[in-house]
Design a binder for these strands. Structure first.
Length: 737
DNA sequence: GTTAACCGGCTTTTT
DNA sequence: GCCGGTTAAC
């Protein structure tokens, strides 16, 4: 029996319709990934298409990874040649090869949100823009939006004639692009926009990719913006074999420029489009699905459709109302603990979803107290942490010395006694000579009025130069180790000896691990390649499905995922829907919020619990919100409202004298035993007292003492170079030699 | 040039 | 309530 027999008629049709434009309207949980993977298999095995000619674009690396694995499972051979990636990685790969055709250097760096903000800060200073009036983030948002719409600085300026404030933004936009180019950097939006520019100005490049990608599939199509649409249509314009999969009801990125018109108007742009609807849901129970259907029906702007399912009716959707955020978190955590205890589910089956990242804190606190393993997705990205950015900035400087931002970040880290005045002088000189900041540093002795400061700069330049000379013979992890050693970064942190510094060291160890993995697993590891990979990961990408922990994340991050047990917290007007949309002129904003709610509900397979709170602390102030309007849109018959008495009972459980500050203290104390459930005490150490061991940073030493503690061994080592150090075995990773 | 103490703004979502 | 920025003291 063929693998295609397991598909329903619509799915099968979508799989077999390989030629020409195809729009698959796939409702939540209707098996679209299944369709896409089978379609790829079908193209290769039944149609004899070369895997090399197939491309599938997804939204996140995680989705791409999963799709690759699933294609791998059903395709005999050649699956590794199918190009499955995200828009951003695809564009980077193209640009690395050809961006010089439109006047850029192929070794560009990629700026993240932090970098963008620092650059913008500089620009505002230079252009004397009052950042109280025009905030950096607002300026960046406007520029980003322009780029999503493929509007160049010149066009922006033309469109702004007569509007003083917009003219000012146009000026900023222009300067921003100039600075990016000077730093040999691109931001996220540039990656797409420049690729489109490249295609438009170099027909031969476009054609080579058109020949390469004869069959193109785009997942989560409802969240593409104009630039991405343009990119895809250019690629597909020759062979027209473009298959897009999306659900207008799940479009939740309009605020970021996603254009729902791309899906609603697809048939207009591509004539002869075949449209297939997938309306059977395989994920959720009848009750959950009915709840989702009823909520989304309150939106006026949508393609009418109703999902149905053969699944069992299941439990009712639970709704619980509490007096405070503490109680809410306590209930959710307690409920998960109970279900786990009763064997109803594993931790990995549970997810807590909320509207804003700030809501995660209370849950974290309770999970820690309950000793339940959890993983927080989003919030401060791993790669956005100070210690990580510092070290990466060293690597970036080694890789691309034109990146002034990176150089300026690290010039005084660790402290070299180089202050603001010196930086200003160097910058002046660099601007005068029209050279990069780093090149100016190299000529420090020529800079007037620097005086003694020039001497302080010297060792920094020498360090970078020698790191650079190692670049050819060293792997990325060796280079990173060397940076750590030369800067004494970790040693300083060890000396600091606080909970925080220990957490930072842990992060650095993780970075080293990532670099090592990259060296090992990449076909052709390069420093640039590593930095690029690191720049394009989203937090969700690093979630390991094999780890048994509860996931905490925003509704946006949850898109595309499913869980047996879902908790939607903070169902309050002002939180969800956000107060921003409640006050909005545009009714479309509220509809987007409702779609977000729909996405949240449809993540649940078996149980869905929605919670709200009477009084919530926001920015240190108590706020009283009404129960979310979305709750009232749920059909009564599928919801179990809980009993009123329950909250009184819970109330008495929480001692009233337990002030916020005390709670926080308790949280802090626990929070910095970093991921205690993951730190596994080794049964036995591979070394004992008297052995000679090697440490990544400290080098070789002799083990003087080993003390067994509750969670770990504390090992004392006398190092040849740095003397006696005490450390925990689980993260010191000592090797016997 | 560095550090500690204070002040004000902010938070909706992110590849 | 936190972060980042500014200020004042060393």
């Amino acid at each position: 029996m063929s693998i295609y027999e397991n598909l329903n008629p619509q799915q099968k049709e979508a799989v077999c319709q390989t030629e020409g434009p195809l729009l698959i309207l796939a409702g939540a949980g209707s098996g679209k990934t299944r369709v896409l993977t089978h379609r790829i298999a079908y193209l290769i095995e039944e149609k004899g298409v070369n895997p090399w000619n197939i491309m599938a674009i997804t939204f996140t690396n995680k989705a791409a990874q999963e799709m690759k694995e699933r294609v791998d499972q059903i395709v005999g051979f050649g699956s590794e040649s199918v190009w499955v990636t995200t828009f951003h990685s695809t564009c980077v790969r193209i640009l690395r090869r050809y961006i010089d055709r439109i006047g850029f250097d192929n070794r560009f760096t990629i700026y993240d949100a932090d970098d963008q903000k620092s650059l913008m800060k500089d620009i505002c200073k230079r252009l004397q823009i009052d950042t109280k009036l025009y905030k950096e983030r607002a300026l960046l948002a406007q520029i980003s939006h322009a780029k999503d719409q493929l509007v160049s600085p010149e066009e922006f300026e033309l469109n702004s004639q007569g509007d003083y404030s917009k003219m000012r933004v146009a000026e900023v936009y222009k300067e921003y692009q100039t600075q990016l180019r000077r730093n040999n950097a691109l931001d996220f939006d540039d990656l797409i926009m420049k690729t489109v520019e490249l295609f438009q100005s170099c027909p031969e490049v476009l054609e080579s990719y058109q020949e390469r990608f004869r069959y193109i599939m785009v997942d989560e199509y409802q969240d593409t913006n104009l630039a991405q649409f343009q990119f895809v249509s250019l690629l597909a314009s020759k062979y027209q074999n473009l298959c897009v999969v999306g659900d207008d009801d799940q479009s939740i990125y309009k605020f970021r420029g996603a254009n729902i018109e791309n899906i609603l108007g697809f048939e207009r742009v591509f004539s002869n489009t075949k449209v297939i609807r997938l309306e059977q849901n395989y994920r959720s129970t009848k009750n959950i699905l009915q709840a989702a259907n009823e909520v989304i029906q309150n939106n006026a702007q949508r393609k009418p459709k109703t999902l149905w399912t053969d699944n069992e009716e299941g439990n009712k959707v639970h709704f619980r109302h509490f007096l405070s955020g503490f109680e809410e978190a306590e209930y959710v955590v307690g409920d998960i603990a109970q279900k786990h205890r009763e064997g109803i589910c594993s931790y990995r089956d549970c997810a807590v979803l909320y509207r804003t990242n700030a809501q995660s804190r209370l849950f974290e606190e309770k999970f820690l107290m309950a000793n339940i393993p959890y993983r927080l997705v989003g919030g401060v990205n791993f790669y956005a942490r100070k210690e990580i950015k510092d070290l990466l900035s060293y690597l970036k400087t080694v890789d691309n010395a034109k990146d002034d931002l990176a150089v300026r970040r690290i010039i005084n880290i660790p402290k070299r006694g180089i202050g603001a005045t010196t930086l200003l002088r160097v910058q002046e000189y660099a601007t005068e000579q029209d050279i990069s900041f780093y090149d100016a540093l190299k000529e420090a002795e020529k800079i007037p009025k620097l005086g003694r400061a020039a001497v302080k700069i010297q060792p920094f330049v020498t360090m970078i130069q020698s790191l650079r000379s190692e670049q050819r013979s060293f792997s990325v992890s060796e280079l990173l180790d060397d940076v750590i050693e030369r800067t004494g970064y970790v040693q300083d942190l060890i000396a600091e000896d606080t909970d925080e510094s220990r957490a930072r060291i842990e992060n650095i160890d993780e970075l080293i691990t990532k670099a090592t993995t990259y060296d090992k697993e990449s076909e052709n590891p390069t420093l640039g390649g590593f930095l690029e990979e690191v720049a394009l990961v989203a937090d969700i990408d690093t979630v390991d499905p094999n780890q048994d922990h509860v996931l905490l994340m925003t509704l946006h991050s949850a898109k595309g995922l499913e869980f047996s047990q879902v908790y939607l917290a903070g169902m309050e007007d002002g939180i969800f829907p956000s107060y921003m949309t409640i006050g909005s002129e545009d009714p479309g904003d509220m509809e987007e919020e409702r779609r977000l709610c729909y996405v949240g509900i449809t993540r649940a397979m078996k149980d869905l619990t929605m919670t709200s709170v009477q009084q919530r602390m926001i920015r240190g102030q108590a706020q009283y919100n009404k129960v979310s309007r979305f709750i009232y849109e749920l059909p009564r018959e599928v919801v179990d409202m809980g009993h009123k008495i329950e909250k009184k009972e819970i109330k008495t459980e929480v001692p009233r004298n337990n002030t916020y500050a005390q709670m926080r203290e308790a949280f802090r104390a626990k929070a910095f035993q970093p991921r205690q459930f993951e730190v596994k005490k080794a049964d036995k150490l591979s070394y004992e007292v008297g052995d000679t061991v090697r440490h990544v940073k400290f080098g070789v030493g002799i083990v003087k003492n080993i003390v067994e503690g509750g969670k770990d061994y504390e090992v004392t080592v006398d190092f040849d170079q740095v003397g006696v150090k005490k450390m925990f075995a689980s993260f010191a990773k000592l090797k016997k030699i």
